[in-house]
Measured scan of single mutants.
Amino acid sequence: MTEYKLVVVGAGGVGKSALTIQLIQNHFVDEYDPTIEDSYRKQVVIDGETCLLDILDTAGQEEYSAMRDQYMRTGEGFLCVFAINNTKSFEDIHHYREQIKRVKDSEDVPMVLVGNKCDLPSRTVDTKQAQDLARSYGIPFIETSAKTRQGVDDAFYTLVREIRKHKEKMSKDGKKKKKKSKTKCVIM
């Protein structure tokens, strides 16, 4: 069974824990209790493949930012979460993405942009803004509501699919490099 290491990042209060708990335990946590770091595991079937999701729910508070490099190193894919009623959390996505790329030393890291709290009427981040940002990053965008469960499975499952595509691409690139290195030079 394939294991996928997913990391949920975003500013404090955007609903990272609520999304994760909704996926794992099928219930909505409405009281806000700032996370330092929590880890969850769940076995699911995605596109006919049974897999184990190892999900790291991270601290959004700035005082825990020193811990970010460590979990970013171990993560295979990242859910970059903002709240649709919090423009600052949307603007912060850029910083999370840049930090992930720096730590992973790669421009090509599996990510999904997630606009959470889409059940709320007080939207300050337009869907088109988020779609445009995701398009500019070359990553999928999904709106979710941890409260109603809308888009929750889709967000995590899409990230797994992005990781699969990335692994497939990397193995193809690896095979191309191996083929090239088999060419021999004969000096007579």
Rank of each mutant, 00 (worst) to 15 (best):
E76G: 02
E3Q: 05
E91R: 13
K165Q: 10
T74K: 01
Q22C: 03
R123D: 13
L120V: 12
G48S: 10
Y137V: 11
Q70Y: 00
D54S: 01
I21Y: 10
T35S: 00
E63I: 08
D108L: 06
R97S: 09
V14M: 11
A155R: 04
M188I: 07
T35G: 00
L52C: 05
L79S: 02
K169R: 08
S65L: 11
Y71I: 15
V29R: 08
T183D: 14
G174R: 08
G13D: 12
T183P: 06
A66E: 04
H27K: 11
Q150H: 03
S181F: 09
E49H: 11
V186R: 01
R97V: 15
D57S: 00
Q70D: 01
V7I: 03
A18C: 05
K128T: 08
I36L: 15
K128V: 08
G13R: 06
T58V: 12
K176Q: 07
A83W: 01
H166R: 09
I139V: 09
T127H: 09
I24N: 07
A83F: 03
K175L: 05
F28S: 00
V125E: 11
N26I: 03
L113I: 13
D154T: 08
G77M: 13
M111S: 01
D69Q: 03
Y32N: 01
D38W: 15
N86C: 12
F156N: 08
E107N: 12
L120A: 11
Y32P: 00
K101W: 07
L53N: 07
N85D: 13
G75H: 02
K178C: 06
K169H: 14
Y96A: 09
S181E: 10
G60A: 02
V112H: 01
Q43E: 02
V160E: 08
C118W: 10
S106P: 06
D105K: 13
L52V: 08
H95V: 06
T127V: 08
G48Y: 08
S122Q: 13
K182M: 11
Q129T: 13
D30I: 06
T58R: 01
D69G: 02
G48D: 09
L113D: 12
L56C: 01
G60H: 08
D126H: 08
F82D: 02
H166D: 11
P34N: 00
C51Q: 03
Q22G: 04
D30W: 07
D54Y: 07
K117Q: 15
F90A: 15
T158Y: 12
A59N: 15
F82N: 07
K5A: 11
E107W: 09
R135S: 10
L113F: 12
L56Q: 01
E107G: 11
V109I: 14
C185S: 13
V109Y: 10
T127R: 08
V7T: 04
Y32K: 00
L19S: 13
R135W: 13
V9M: 15
E49R: 08
K88A: 07
D33M: 15
D154E: 11
H166W: 06
Q129C: 14
G77E: 02
R68A: 15
L159W: 05
E3A: 03
Q99F: 11
K101D: 14
D132Q: 08
Y157C: 10
L120H: 06
K117D: 12
V8A: 07
D173R: 08
D47Y: 05
A59D: 00
L23Q: 13
L52A: 04
S17E: 02
L113W: 14
D119W: 02
F28D: 00
G60D: 08
K128F: 08
K169L: 12
H27L: 09
G138I: 15
T35N: 00
K42D: 02
L133H: 14
V29E: 05
R123N: 13
R102V: 09
S106L: 13
R161L: 14
T87A: 12
E107V: 12
R164M: 12
K167A: 10
R123F: 07
S136L: 12
G13I: 11
M111N: 05
R68I: 15
V152N: 09
T127N: 10
L56R: 00
Y137H: 08
K42I: 09
H94R: 15
V14H: 13
P121V: 10
C51L: 04
P110S: 05
D126C: 10
I36H: 00
